[in-house]
Design a protein around this nucleic acid. Structure first.
Lengths: 345, 345
DNA sequence: AGAGTTAATGAAAGCGCTTTCAAAAGTATG
DNA sequence: CATACTTTTGAAAGCGCTTTCATTAACTCT
């Protein structure tokens, strides 16, 4: 194997090369490239031609250094596993594309061995602002960046109380209200299992609270043993429900924190010979693309993930443009009724 | 609304600030930060302390400019819609994380209004190398970058014949062979509809070829009207099959280019009161997470998407390290037999 | 025709860092 | 104690660009 023969790509044309070829100064080249000052007709032509011939493209780092901007937006995520991610990123991209900014994605299962100054590079240096997904960083760093007035928008959590950082999330309370009311009022279920996400997940916490409150409001007692922890994954859902089944805890409905977990729950229930929705009704969250194709088609809360991504990026862009946006945005969610809850077509 | 009061974040500490505070020169600071030359014990201490106090972090653009490297890997994708994307990106990230590189994601439904020098910035300037997803750019640009010896790895296509750029893809031929043989040999199907992806999609073209060849080898005539075009989406699959149905073209099996389309096909078949697999057997491609939870569970080709992402990134990193990797890598795929093909548990 | 403007251009500084080169300080050697 | 090395440090150049400021050229008016 041919190790470490460092083969640098051919040197690129610089602004000086263009200037020389066009017979002008580099200032002039800069001006025609950026259209920052009037330049005479023929000089402009010459410069453009020279640039074309050398297939010149400005060197980003140099430009960034000079203007003290990176034209980059950081996107900080925990691991990129879930299906949530595709529509979210799509939304972000759609907002960013028409601008001069680019997207720097950073999945941050932060390795602790990293040098401290390397770890958070995205937040502090390689970007002009950043979009922070829930659970992708700690409060301390968030606070540090906040104090430096580093532009940020938070996704699906609101950040430290003391900070007041703009954020975007779903209206979890309303969603839960819809779910619980539907299950209790329409289908008469009273023993609803709630398969929540991991501890510390902001949305999950909110939902759990709303779950219990709505139940109480409807005069149904909620039982702690029916609130179980999953992983927002298929196997997570499967094993959580299996555990409930094994412990002999009765329930007549299950609400899962996301659709992916719902597939696992379905598998577990089927294995236990429980019919959906007759024996146990099911409702999911997210309305992922396949939800309607499950068996039975999954009733679920539709959450506008792509829109959330789009709005978050838009918000950040507006901050970068010097505007002062609203701090909190809650996106409405809506119950999509299919058949897993017991409704007929 | 408070428009365009440009509020720059507070100025950060620079290397000179640290140097001043520590009472040394900036060269020395640079040396301790990067550990590029021996520095006496106490000076090192002083510098580290000063850096800590000012919470100094080097400015990436400046460093990049000086070392003529961006430490960034570009990832060029078409739109980020599909579910394919999450595992792919996960693989890429896993390969990139332990290194000093970062990931610059660029979804390139290139808008034609962009200035020509802006359009391709990722390829030429903001990254040290790039991962190019199929259909995310045109041959011309690929060739330009190739001639400049810009490090690239192609994902799921092999690029222009003349270029010889390293690439990673699936072993489509083998996959198709498995599918067709299974359908023909095990289940005796002879009228297999092939729902392929968009025209110009490299994988789709390869698969179509293998599809026809295998059929011929098995002595089954293939009919052009059974090869239909979809979109790698659920609705795309649905309408394609619906069209077949409407035109009264008979088939006893359908192979879809991906699992997402398969969900649509299932819907269309069900609507036509055709039973799966009795009336028409089905096989998908990709083995997306939900495939096993469809009704009936989908027999499909499992493609190691995450691994492909990981390997592609690894390959690019090795190029950046000066090694010369293999040009072509084909990842094996495997038929996962569930029930939509007609097999029993 | 000369003074006063205006438009187009270039020279040069500076963005924050790395890195080469030389100087200074310390150590070993004859 | 002078000489020859080492080791540690600083000065300064340069990476490729933007931008300010000064200069020159070209007009416009009286």
């Amino acid at each position: 194997m041919n190790t470490s023969i460092v083969r640098r790509p051919k040197p690129r044309a610089t602004i000086s090369d263009v200037a020389r070829l066009a017979g002008v100064s580099i200032s002039t080249v800069s001006r025609v490239i950026n259209d920052t000052a009037p330049v005479s007709e023929d000089v402009e032509q010459r410069v453009r031609q020279a640039a074309e011939m050398l297939s010149y493209t400005p060197h980003a780092a140099a430009r960034n250094l000079a203007v003290r901007k990176t034209y980059m937006i950081g996107l900080l995520l925990p691991e990129l596993g879930n299906n949530f991610f595709a529509p979210l990123l799509r939304g972000v991209e759609n907002a960013v594309r028409p601008t001069e900014y680019q997207l720097l994605v950073h999945a941050s299962l932060r390795s602790l061995e990293d040098a401290p100054w390397r770890r958070s590079s995205i937040g502090e240096h390689n970007a002009d602002g950043m979009l922070v997904f829930v659970n992708s960083t700690d409060e301390e760093e968030l606070l540090r960046n906040y104090q430096r007035e580093f532009p940020m928008v938070l996704l699906f959590f609101s950040g430290p109380r003391s900070a007041n950082i703009p954020h975007i999330g779903f209206d979890n309370a309303s969603g839960l209200r819809q779910v619980v009311e539907h299950l209790v009022t329409v289908h008469g279920r009273r023993q609803i299992a709630f398969l929540r996400g991991p501890v510390g997940n902001f949305d999950s916490d909110e939902r759990e609270m709303a779950f219990c409150q709505t139940l109480e409001r409807l005069g149904v007692a909620w039982r702690p043993e029916l609130i179980v922890r999953g992983h927002y994954t298929s196997v997570g859902g499967e094993s959580a429900i299996q555990a409930l089944l094994d412990r002999g805890i009765a329930f007549d409905a299950v609400f899962t924190g996301d659709d992916e977990a719902a597939t696992g729950v379905m598998a577990a229930l089927r294995r236990a010979n429980l019919r959906i929705p007759e024996d146990v009704a099911m409702i999911g969250f997210d309305d992922l693309p396949f939800a309607g194709y499950l068996n039975p088609p999954l009733t679920t809360i539709q959450a506008p993930v792509e829109r959330a991504g789009f709005l978050a990026a838009t918000k950040l862009l507006s901050i970068l443009a010097g505007e002062i946006p609203e701090i909190a945005t809650r996106l409405p969610v809506e119950l999509v009724i299919r058949q897993s809850c017991g409704c007929r077509r």
